[in-house]
Computed example of a mutant assay.
Amino acid sequence: MLDYEGLIKESWLLTKKDLGTWIAATILGLFGSIFLITIGPLAYGYNHMVVKSLRSENVRVKDIFEGFKLRNFFGSWIVIIVSTLPYLLIALISSLLAYIVVFPFVYTMPLLVLRKCGGIAACKESARIAISRPVETILITILYGFFVNIGFLALLIGALITIPFAEIFLTGVVFDLTGEERTNGTSIDENTFLNENSPYDNFSE
């Protein structure tokens, strides 16, 4: 059975140990992935950093470019295509369906307040306006969604910490499930963070 507590503690300690490096690499990975061709290699490089961290090797920001080496580039893209294409297709279909459903009712709540009418009447009126002015309604819906969601962008700062933490945790689980050893030959067990001779002692405050 996996030692979830130990894995979580290890993930946090390793994240905290190289926090500046992880933040810089995460920013680089997020912005770099804007370009479709770089998604796979950057994902490979980020996980390369995670494996190095779990093996107690020095982690450097430039390690994120490991995926651009020819032997890693194509493999990383095969993984991205196989693992994300079904998700992207489902997400696209879901987004289109959600938009079709929401589109006619974008004006419903303001109409409910302004007209002081019933909910069904407000929905009908909103749908009538949306159908009669589809171009304007599409634009309004897009702008409204942008204005609502832009405030949540500040919360992405937290992702600069949670992303490396989550990746270290997941890869640590893979280490344990596959029996892969760290360089020092240790693996997580229930005494890892209790043993005074633990190899992770140097990560603690």
Rank of each mutant, 00 (worst) to 15 (best):
I129K: 00
A127Q: 00
G151H: 08
I131F: 09
T171P: 00
I161W: 14
G151V: 11
I168E: 01
E167P: 01
P134T: 02
I150W: 08
V135N: 04
A154W: 15
P164I: 13
A127T: 00
S126W: 00
F169C: 09
T137H: 02
E136K: 05
A159T: 12
L156W: 11
L156H: 05
V135I: 15
V148E: 02
L139P: 02
S126D: 01
A159H: 09
L155G: 15
L160M: 14
F152N: 14
Y144A: 11
I140A: 12
I142R: 03
V148L: 11
L153S: 13
I129M: 05
F147Q: 05
L139H: 04
L155Y: 14
T141A: 13
T162K: 07
I131M: 10
S132D: 06
L143G: 00
P134S: 02
I157M: 08
I131E: 04
I142C: 06
I161L: 14
G158E: 03
F169R: 07
I131T: 12
G145A: 06
T162S: 14
E136V: 03
L160G: 12
R128L: 07
F169P: 08
L155T: 11
P134E: 01
I138A: 11
F165C: 11
S132L: 07
F165G: 11
L156R: 08
I150H: 03
F169G: 06
A130D: 03
F146G: 02
L153Y: 14
P134H: 01
T141N: 09
I163W: 06
I131H: 05
R128H: 10
L170G: 01
T137E: 01
V173N: 03
Y144S: 09
A166M: 12
Y144R: 02
I150L: 14
A127Y: 00
S132N: 10
I161K: 11
A159F: 13
I129C: 02
L153K: 08
A166C: 10
G151A: 10
I157Y: 12
L156V: 08
I140T: 14
L156D: 02
T137V: 03
L155E: 04
I138D: 01
T171S: 07
S126I: 00
R133W: 07
I131L: 13
I140H: 06
I150R: 07
F165Y: 15
I150T: 11
F165E: 10
L170C: 08
F152H: 13
L139R: 09
I163K: 02
T137P: 01
G145W: 07
G172T: 07
